[in-house]
């Protein structure tokens, strides 16, 4: 009897640990942010009205979405190729892929952003090579543009997209592909009609991870954008610390959270990502 009781106590403790931690450290502050958005500088919905009517704010939101979509598209495409070689390549190729995926993954985002500046600036390595080889006659402005922001973000996000893709590719039974070829299907037909559909769940998971992660990017656009690419995360920071417009900053945060939640819910409904963790 005693041991049953002990087990029950243990179960209760384990079950409640997470809610007890989440409530004061996450839910309560979040409600505080929500309250700010409705009460500062005065009670009312004016912060949310501004969120949907102020052209400057909408421009920041649209820019954020445009860049994040572009980053998601390129990252998932690159990651798909990387994952394919990682899963199906020869042992030597797998090792190279692992180095290419994990080394950048372990380096801090700040260092990588500055690394790109060193590479891409006017007197940087990239321009030196292009000038020396005669491809261009004047240095290109590669850094502090939307191009360098997208590049820096893709570089950061690719490993995050590789993992779910590699995970689904590993689960594919090679016999299915063999059967397709055996039935006379061409290699490309097999890829598009057998392989690709089987990796769809991984693609969707990769898209969700990359897109949601990208929405919160702060350092990379700030460093590589030359001050010109203000995205939503930095805009919230500006409202909090520079202009101390806390109510509006809170409303932006709530808006961003809502957008992420809606997008995630939609995509989760389309493809059930729980299938990934069989």
């Amino acid at each position: 009897m005693g041991s049953v009781r002990q087990t029950q106590v243990l179960q209760t403790v384990l079950l409640w640990t997470l809610p007890v931690l989440v409530l004061p450290f996450y839910i309560a502050p979040l409600l505080g942010v929500f309250e700010w958005s409705l009460s500062r500088p005065e009670p009312g919905l004016q912060n949310y009205v501004r969120l949907v009517t102020d052209g400057d704010v909408i421009a920041v939101l649209l820019r954020t979405f445009r860049i994040c979509l572009l980053v998601t598209l390129i990252s998932v495409l690159c990651a798909y190729l990387l994952a394919y070689h990682w899963v199906f390549g020869s042992p030597a190729r797998r090792l190279i892929m692992e180095i290419c995926i994990f080394i950048p993954f372990w380096i801090s985002v700040l260092i990588r952003a500055f690394g790109w500046i060193v590479l891409l600036r006017t007197k940087g390595v990239a321009n030196d090579i292009l000038l020396f080889s005669g491809v261009i006659s004047d240095p290109l402005y590669l850094v502090r543009t939307e191009f360098s922001v997208v590049l820096g973000m893709v570089h950061f996000m690719v490993p995050f997209a590789v993992f779910p893709l590699a995970s689904v590719m590993r689960q594919i039974d090679p016999k299915i592909l063999l059967a397709s070829r055996g039935m006379g299907a061409s290699a490309s037909f097999t890829f598009f009609n057998a392989f690709l559909p089987l990796t769809l769940a991984g693609i969707v998971a990769a898209i969700i991870i990359v897109f949601v992660f990208s929405l919160g990017f702060f350092i990379t656009p700030a460093v590589l954008g030359g001050g010109k690419i203000v995205m939503i995360a930095e805009y919230i920071y500006i409202q909090m610390f520079q202009t101390t417009n806390w109510g509006f900053g809170a409303a932006l945060s709530v808006g961003l959270l809502a957008i992420v939640a809606i997008l995630s819910a939609l995509l989760f409904r389309v493809i059930r990502p729980e299938r990934l963790v069989r």
Partner: peptide, 11 residues
């Protein structure tokens, strides 16, 4: 207010 406008312009 001015900073909001300025950042909107440069961005």
């Amino acid at each position: 207010g001015a900073l909001d406008k300025y950042l909107a312009l440069i961005g």
